[in-house]
Design a protein around this nucleic acid. Structure first.
Lengths: 155, 155
DNA sequence: CTAAGATAGACAACGTCGTTGTCGTTAATA
DNA sequence: TATTAACGACAACGACGTTGTCTATCTTAG
């Protein structure tokens, strides 16, 4: 079709859509008492999960070195979102667990994302939004955690 | 609706869609003789444009400091994608211009993006893809250049 | 049971890429 | 003509990733 938009618009719109949602999420999180939460933190805490994990395991999940995962954990610890404790059954391991504050971020994020999704539905229509999600699922990989965001874009 | 997906899936799908397109672009660019092109470079070269620009101007366009823009320009210069020359009418300024190799990257990128878009159209349907783009335009800002990708996601 | 190997995490050194601050040169302006 | 503003270069610093090394601990082969 000659009236199709140029192909480079599609990736930009996808990224901008992502960026808009994440920015609005964090603006709202800041209003709700979590001004220090950064985009990365939500993903990392989701990867940590309710059961907890270790630095090595987290690194594998996120696709970064254990040292990088360790540094991220330190940051989250300083913010009070996670805490570390020795594993009694393997004293080498240190289990990283979400604090109530960390869980609170995840709970609020889930609710905010639902609200943002509803706002999009109000703009483009409920059916169209469902179609958009269905279509995106067809062209994206099923595994959702290996974002590899850090450094991937860099020069 | 109770059978709506959780709201957090939407941003992930948007980002994964972006990532898939960019990754495939650069795999193809590498095959076509540009193995060193990185995701950022395309955006930066697009921002430089055919007419050329300066470090200060580029920094403003991209939303980074002039020093950061200068370093990116150095990298592109080392890769042979841009070259610098003094502006005869203002000897303070150094005009950054795309080399034929840099233009080649942009031309090939445009063609590859069109092909990738066609591939998506084959998967989800031509009409649905147009709707997807239309819908995304409604929920994203019109200005497309201030991606602010570097550092934005960071901890 | 013990010795060898593997694994968890801490620490250090380094590279990249962004930032701010400073400075000399050159334009624009009062 | 003197002051102010802008461009680009250089240096120092911080954030965040990497690899390498080290100790402590667990696992496993002999």
């Amino acid at each position: 079709m000659s009236n199709d938009p140029p192909g480079f618009e599609l990736p930009l719109r996808l990224f901008l859509g992502f960026r808009v949602l994440i920015d609005e999420l964090h603006a709202e999180l800041a209003r709700q008492g979590h001004p220090h939460a950064r985009p990365m933190h939500g993903f990392v805490m989701q990867a940590i999960g309710i059961e907890g994990t270790t630095a090595v395991e987290l690194g594998r999940t996120l696709g970064v070195s254990k040292q990088a995962a360790g540094k991220t954990i330190e940051t989250l610890e300083r913010l009070g979102y996670v805490e570390r404790a020795r594993d009694p059954r393997d004293t080498r391991r240190k289990i990283v667990r979400l604090t109530p504050s960390g869980v609170d971020v995840l709970v609020r994020s889930a609710r905010i994302f639902d609200e943002l999704r509803a706002r999009w539905a109000a703009v483009i229509g409920d059916e169209r939004l469902r179609e958009l999600e269905t279509d995106l699922r067809k062209v994206t990989p099923p595994d959702v955690f290996r974002l590899d965001v850090p450094g991937w874009f860099g020069a």
